[in-house]
Write a protein that binds this DNA or RNA. Structure first.
Lengths: 207, 207
DNA sequence: TAGATTGTTAATCGATTAACAATC
DNA sequence: TAGATTGTTAATCGATTAACAATC
């Protein structure tokens, strides 16, 4: 019962499960249950069990889930049991904060190249890996040379589509887009959006 | 045909529609259609029409939608035709980037108070509004005094739940949480999450 | 064993889509 | 008018939930 056409919405919840399991691991806990996970995440236990069942059987009746084991399994399923090189475009306030963000450590991602158009930024060193900012004209070649699959866009909205195009043409297949605009990419490329304004505006309706 | 129990998922798309309309406004365009919006956003035209139909009739058969009008209507529906004061907790790299973010301008939000626990940060001025960072012990009283409804959490994960609690107790009803942890709040309080690791991990499965 | 919790089934619930009459 | 596009209906599709046999 595994592997064929898992709903996107299920995949979308797995990283949240993984994050909760990481906390349980850090707390030194051994066993958890779909009930406990559901309570922590505000999700029904049935949904957690159903989601996991798409990938195999990870629990024991009457007992629950071995935390370390399930944690490892989810890391494998999500392919974050390895380190993905990430190319970041945009070295302004936002790009710098992303490059400096310590939260990627141990989660499967490391930003190993940074690009900008601003001549005063190019050549300066930045981020966890302390890499030199390159001119955005080197973006495509760098992606190709290093076979980078994951990109982050942190440019102004007006440049996002162009950058996405360059990334895709060079072989990027996953883009995290911080620019406040919807971008168009081929259907074999995934995009996730991060826009705090959209996040806030999703809540004000209810106020 | 309006106002009773609109699906959450519909509300969630409206800010994206609004964002697209803002671009059309900026481009000086007058009229658009559900087809054009759908093409830009990668959504079916039927879905856009259905979503809008929850709130009223905004278009003209044979013609489409008057861009400025629909833009204004969505701003009213989402209640972003006013300015919401936002309290930000966490003045580290991430908090500073959020405070300095120019993208809130004209979208309904302004960060007017910033809090941290770090004594070396307290008193320094920060963000678009150039406000002095306050000790987090002043959070509750500030929210009450200024009747602030919207909060942003940009603390380490271990402090997020406590901050959320303080915010909620003081009357906050919408929280944008950048901390990489699920927080628990009463059901009348909305939470939106921003976690780049979750965003990236939602894509690696497909690589 | 007795108690607990999984994995799975079937039913329910909700969202999306296709189609088209209405009408600008 | 002829062409285009809305708003809405009904059908389809998909996701969530409740319930429980299996079993640790």
């Amino acid at each position: 019962m595994a592997k064929r056409s898992i709903p996107d919405i299920v995949i979308g919840r797995l990283p949240v499960y993984l994050r909760a399991l990481s906390f349980l691991v850090a707390e030194g806990r051994q066993i958890t249950s779909s009930q406990e996970l559901g309570d922590r995440l505000g999700i029904s236990s049935a949904q957690i069990r159903k989601d996991l069942s798409h990938f195999g059987e990870f629990g024991k009746q009457g007992t629950g889930y071995e935390i370390n084991f399930l944690h490892d399994q989810l890391r494998q399923i999500l392919k974050v049991d390895r380190m993905w090189e990430v190319a970041l475009v945009g070295a302004g306030n936002l790009g710098k904060a992303i490059a400096d963000y310590a939260g990627f450590a141990g989660k499967g991602f490391v930003i190993t190249s940074i690009f900008d158009t601003d001549g005063t930024k190019i050549g300066t060193r930045m981020g966890i890996e302390n890499v030199a900012v390159m001119d955005v004209s080197a973006l495509g070649q760098t992606i190709r040379d290093r076979e980078i699959s994951v990109g982050i866009i942190a440019t102004p909205a007006e440049h996002a589509q162009g950058v996405a195009r360059t990334m895709v043409d060079a072989g990027i297949r996953a883009i995290l887009n911080y620019a406040p605009i919807t971008i168009t990419v081929p259907s074999n490329v995934r995009v996730q959006y991060i826009d705090p304004v959209v996040g806030l505006q999703r809540m004000t309706y209810y106020l």
